[in-house]
């Protein structure tokens, strides 16, 4: 019931922010569209039997988002330096890191954050083990990834 309410609010907000036409007819059609979308999504959830567990704290997620933007800016500088220096000064390496998040969504947020920061790319996510490829591997990069892992674990709301 709670997930139904959350998806209704999110989809209605999306419609209102996209639309910009606040007339009765269009708003009514918008309500119909939101209901139709919820019908399809519930049907898909029921048929494939895989629902996403939304145990995420929204405010912590926002804080994490801004921290992630800072990280992206920092690592962009590193990769731009590497591009300017050229092929001979890079130290590519593929390594494994373990994920400590409970839900699938947390793991996916962690993998996506790794890919979003240039210089590290997540390749394969399987059984709490994440295969990561780094452009310039050193000791600090594993430390940074461990801190990111801890922060993503932090945004999951405890049950």
């Amino acid at each position: 019931m709670r997930s139904l309410f959350i998806s209704f609010v999110l989809l209605s907000l999306t419609w209102l922010l996209l639309s910009g036409v606040y007339k009765g007819l269009i708003m009514g059609l918008g309500l119909l569209s939101v209901l139709l979308t919820i019908y399809f999504v519930r049907r898909m959830d029921k048929i494939d039997g895989y629902t996403i567990d939304f145990s995420i704290n929204i405010f912590k997620l926002l804080g994490y988002f801004f921290w992630l933007l800072m990280e992206i800016a920092k690592s962009n500088i590193e990769v731009v330096k590497a591009i300017i220096k050229g092929d001979n000064h890079i130290n590519k390496k593929m390594f494994f890191i373990s994920t400590s998040q409970r839900s699938d969504l947390g793991k996916v947020i962690f993998a996506n954050s790794i890919t979003l920061t240039p210089g590290t790319i997540s390749i394969n996510l399987e059984n709490n083990q994440l295969c990561v490829h780094a452009l310039n591997f050193n000791e600090a990069s594993t430390k940074g990834l461990e801190e990111m892992d801890r922060r993503v674990k932090n945004i999951e709301s405890g049950s």
Partner: peptide, 21 residues
């Protein structure tokens, strides 16, 4: 960077600069 790097795995990171930064 995508044009300059010789290796596919290095190019992935150059493309990542485009797609995030």
């Amino acid at each position: 960077g995508m044009l300059r790097f010789a290796d596919f795995w290095a190019r992935l990171h150059a493309a990542s600069v485009i797609e995030s930064g």
